[in-house]
Design a protein around this nucleic acid. Structure first.
Length: 290
DNA sequence: CTCATTTGACCACC
DNA sequence: GGTGGTCAAATGAG
């Protein structure tokens, strides 16, 4: 994450950076503990557990800060913040929208172009995902056109680990596209009327592992989400600290498997979209410790 | 038998 | 009219 001088950052970003730096230090302590103390130490499990708790709490706080618009956003629904000209979109998920869960995949801050037209926003690569959000232009009959429905897109090698359960309801070959597009809706569509949907399409090219373009539409209104902090962000630096809290069988492990054919992939696709998703935190951050 | 996936048909939007 | 999104019957897995 390369950013300018800290005085150019929105105030809550400075707090987040501070919190993440603390997390980094805690992880360093944890590493030191694991590598240097004898496995038989009586105090080792308890101390390790305490450190883990602190790290988890610290990340939780960081994410909460990111989800909550800073005070300089609060004056209006769309306000310039510092020099970054950041705007929080109406309808963007914040801490109030999703108080019980930390689903970072839905945090969305976009950068408005100066004099932007009705519905276009450009992407701010704040968290390693590529984001797009369409506006709210309406048709003559008052409906939001399909193209303009609120949606956001991420590119990820792990398109299924967003903490929700999805049911596939369609597949379509897209013109000028090598791979079909798969259509999913929330598994709680029927019993809870949750209208969240997403499409997954493999990105063109020979990426290894393959990357998928995941487009979400509508926020979840269901209440039975697995409490997972699924922060699978694309790593772009070797030095990015990676924390995996699941010994083996991580989503990453699943996704980096190679599939014999499309059927084979789809079998895994089914498995990994179930609710039994292990926890993974993979932060793409470069923190200078001093 | 139940439930999830597949797949062709239908429909809305551009 | 072409393309993309959704529906629903058929199919398959457990």
């Amino acid at each position: 994450m390369v950013m300018g001088g800290s005085d150019q950052l929105p105030c809550h970003h400075k707090m987040v950076i501070g919190e993440i730096t603390r997390s980094h230090q805690l992880v360093a302590k944890l590493r030191s503990l694991v590598l240097t103390s004898p496995p038989t130490s009586e105090w080792r499990p308890e101390l390790a557990n305490n450190l883990f708790e602190e790290v988890l709490e610290s990340y939780k706080v960081s994410v909460s800060m990111l989800l909550r618009p800073c005070s300089c956003f609060a004056e209006a629904s769309e306000v310039n913040c510092s020099k970054g000209s950041l705007a929080v979109e109406e309808g963007t998920m914040n801490a109030e929208d999703q108080p019980e869960r930390m689903d970072i995949g839905y945090a969305h801050v976009s950068r408005k172009e100066p004099l932007s037209t009705a519905s276009t926003t450009t992407t701010l690569h704040l968290d390693g995902h590529q984001w797009r959000m369409s506006g709210k232009k309406k048709t003559s009959n008052g409906d939001i056109p399909r193209e303009e429905q609120k949606s956001w897109t991420i590119v990820t090698p792990a398109p299924h680990f967003d903490g929700h359960q999805w049911r596939k309801y369609g597949e379509k070959h897209i013109s000028n596209s090598e791979f079909p597009r798969n259509y999913y809706r929330c598994s709680h569509f029927k019993e809870q009327g949750c209208h969240a949907t997403k499409t997954i399409q493999q990105k063109e090219g020979n990426d290894e592992p393959p990357k998928f373009i995941v487009t979400y539409k509508m926020h979840h209104t269901c209440k039975s989400m697995t409490p997972i902090y699924s922060l699978f962000l694309e790593s772009t630096t070797q030095s990015a600290p990676i924390i995996s809290f699941a010994p083996g069988n991580t989503p990453q492990n699943k996704q980096t498997e190679t599939y014999e054919d499309e059927k084979d992939f789809k079998r895994h696709d089914h498995i990994i979209s179930s609710s039994n998703v292990p926890m993974l935190i993979d932060l793409n951050l470069s923190i200078e410790s001093k």
